[in-house]
Design a protein around this nucleic acid. Sequence first.
RNA 1: GCCGACUUAGCUCAGCGGUAGAGCAACGCUUUUGUAAAGCGUGGGUCGUCGGUUCAAAUCCGACAGUCGGCUCCA
Length: 581
Amino acid sequence: MNKENLDNLRHSCAHLLAAAVLKLYPNAKPTVGPPIEEGFYYDFDFETPISENDLMKIDQKMRELVKKWVSVEKIEVSKNEALKKYKGNKYKQELINEFSEEGKQITFYKSGDFIDLCRGGHVENPSQEIKHFKLLSIAGAYWRGSEKNKMLTRIYGTAFKSKADLDNFLTMKEEAKKRDHKKLGKELDLFTFSDLVGSGLPLYTPKGALLRRLLTEYLEEIQSKEGYSQVWTPQLAKAELFKKSGHYDKFKDDMFIVKSHYSDEEMFLKPMNCPQHTQIYASKSRSYRDLPIRYTDFAMLYRDEQPGQLNGLARVRAFSQDDCHVFCREDQVNDEIDKMLMMTKKVMSTFGFKYRYRLSTRDPKHPEKYFGDLKTWDKVEKWAEKIMKRNNIDYFDGPGEATFYAPKMDLMATDALGREWQLSTVQIDFVQPARFELKFIDKDGKEKTPIMIHRAILGSSERLMMILIEHYSGAFPLWLAPVQVKIIPIAEKHNNFAQKIAKELKKNDIRTDVNEKSESMQKKIREAQLEKVYYMLVVGDREIDSGEINVRTRDGKTSSMTLDVFIKDTKENIAKRTNLS
RNA sequence: GCCGACUUAGCUCAGCGGUAGAGCAACGCUUUUGUAAAGCGUGGGUCGUCGGUUCAAAUCCGACAGUCGGCUCCA
């Protein structure tokens, strides 16, 4: 079934939803109800709010009404007829007036006894075709997506051509819920939050902190090979810095203000690293020979997000990025970005992410949002496009997604459940170097302004942790597994032997635990399984006698080998960062 | 910030006007086990916080905080 057909089905289903709602709540005002990626929604202005519990009732009404929906009839009406029909519904009237101004023919679509203002796009016989649908949730949504407007009540639902498709969709949703990083983060003891510390401020437990450190170390390893040097900058800076960069104007309300007892100077917790890095660059005079200069920084960043948008590790108020800034000459940009794209490719393959790029450009309707001159913007946007094409990169356009200082090449990674997340970004910035009056002395002895390339491969560590937890469902690959080996002595008398093996493994930098509790071996295995430990070594009389160890993997497979072979293989796999499961 | 829902033991949840309950976890004792839960026992909660209604509030009402599903925003 192609997308258009599916959209038609869902659009018709949205109409059916509206019909059911109006039967049950005659005073509710219907507004719009389009098909979307995963289904459809319909926005209503209810007189009294409804809740999720009411969905069942609406669902039943839909199933009842659809029986009589044997056709979809298109009715052309005049503007006045349309306005009359929607007397008292300012939302529909607003749409009707707009359509009329645009010179569009106004059309109604009728099924059963339900008529809706609509431009069309329906299935022919709803009673036959709308069979496999489900109402999913209720949410608030601003009229026409603007926070200045009234908040309406949105009902989300989905519909599919076959029961199998619907079931598959619902199973995927269940699976996503099971993998929810907030749930797994608690179960696997990776991070926590405290009301006393504050919302959106994650606290990493030893295992979570280890994971975070392993990710950072991996990036540091890759970056230092490519000539990046780590710098270190404070969490705090004067307002002046951010005024100069432009961030103050754009994001002042989203920055944490810090007060000094001794000065009236306005200070902020840093929400990003670029302005600080410009000041390291500017600390001495630079020759064209010094370029490119590549700085990396894993410092904590702070953004004062609105409470309603905080969400586990997905959206926090304290986070860090694998943030890099490359200062270079114009003739070096291509090489630098090619190198960045190569590094990114390598990292993505390590995690097993499929990906495509988004070319994030300016919003043509709002040129005022962007700093710097138009000509340069045009040049840089075209340049970015050329780079993608030259690298044979699969990309799509993202108008309006640029930052205020540069277009972006954003990498969208697809995880194990088929969901897309933005990870990497590369930005060619002419604006900030100019605002900070950065210079280098060129061959000809003249001062020139360098270009600043912003780049992150993983994006924020917290967000990446969330994505990886859900991508791997908490069963991390060997190199990331907080506990790589759990030794399970069968009885207390095997504890000493277990400790001896553990000592050997730890000596080889293999993260090992021994479960010495007075529990059944079966229970210890169960606990290790739930902890998603990579390898379990069950040790008992047999192992002591044979001199071979017994290895159980998370998927329940067991094998025997000498400890030396196990250590050698494990070390190799950790070093290669291979993902065996 | 906005709309809606939720907040009871470390965790998952029941109780929904007559001042608290289960399973798991923890702890103790017994058991010493061959690839996903051995048995018995013990401790643990001013029911998110602060107010209000009531003879009586975990339960009803309000404010605040936090969490979740969305919307808006995202350097």
